[in-house]
């Protein structure tokens, strides 16, 4: 999935909302030539009144849609209670930014993946230093699973033009300090649909091993993070732009 001559693309909706939505998104992801499909079933939301995700039902729908289109899956695990289910059904277990320093969850993920060696996509907290991200990864690595993906997704700064400040400095720093693959989540990193393609190009140019994007068939009606989601009809354009920058660096897309 990751290699020095590859750029891995991950796309899908922020949340699984309905069967129609998740199948439409999976179809568009497949048709754009992307192999890895993301979608949230268990959602950590800032407000308890925001849409919390479909939970188990969302997980099932995500898996069904991915299977139907032959895609690999990524979903976030928010708590220990759902870890076993997610580990059983999903290809890449995501730890969200808000859980990066949930060390009991990280330890459990380390323990459950020590044998399966399943990929774990670990997002950097928006308030964490690069060293803290590497130490969080260490909880999983030291348990015996070497397959951790480090994900930069923007940090909080005084700048409000964008939702977060995408710290692309983190890419070469992480590539230098560790041998783990580095993925950039451009949706959270910018919070703005109009910046997804330029910052994807920038992430690849900075040396990222992969780019993750939120894509929704109808972002304006999305229950979560619509303003930072690419309309799925633009996915092919996104892939093409990523391919262009990757090819300059002698890389191909996965």
């Amino acid at each position: 999935m990751f290699a020095s001559d590859k750029v891995t693309l991950i796309a899908g909706p922020c949340s699984v909302e309905t069967r129609e939505q998740v199948f439409a998104a999976a179809k568009a992801v497949k048709e754009a030539g992307i192999k890895i499909f993301r979608g949230g079933a268990y959602k950590p939301r800032t407000s308890p009144y925001s849409f919390q995700g479909l939970g188990d039902e969302g997980l099932e729908l995500l898996v069904e849609a991915a299977k139907n289109y032959g895609l690999m899956t990524v979903t976030e695990v928010t708590e220990v209670d759902v870890l076993e289910k997610v580990h059983e059904k999903i290809d890449v277990i995501q730890v969200g930014a808000r859980n990066m320093d949930n060390y009991s969850l990280l330890k459990k993920i380390g323990a459950i993946t020590a044998e399966s060696k399943k990929w774990v996509l670990l997002k950097r907290s928006f308030a964490a230093t690069i060293e803290e991200l590497l130490l969080a990864a260490e909880y999983i690595l030291s348990a015996g699973n070497p397959n951790v993906i480090l994900c930069e997704r923007g940090i909080r700064t005084f700048e409000h033009a964008t939702r977060f400040t995408l710290d692309l400095n983190a890419v070469p720093v992480l590539k230098k300090l560790s041998t783990l693959p580095v993925v950039v989540d451009v949706s959270h990193g910018t919070g703005r649909a109009d910046m997804l393609i330029p910052m994807s190009r920038a992430a690849i140019a900075a040396g990222a091993d992969g780019v993750m994007i939120e894509a929704h068939p109808n972002p304006k009606e999305a229950l979560c993070d619509g303003q930072q989601s690419l309309q799925t009809s633009h996915l092919k354009e996104w892939v093409e732009e990523c391919r262009k920058v990757a090819s300059v660096l002698g890389k191909s897309l996965y």
């Binding site: 060293e131 590497l134 260490e138 030291s142 230098k176 300090l177 560790s178 041998t179 783990l180």
Partner: peptide, 9 residues
């Protein structure tokens, strides 16, 4: 040998 430079241990 492609070993990690960062070694917190």
């Amino acid at each position: 040998n492609r070993l990690s430079l960062y070694d917190p241990k």
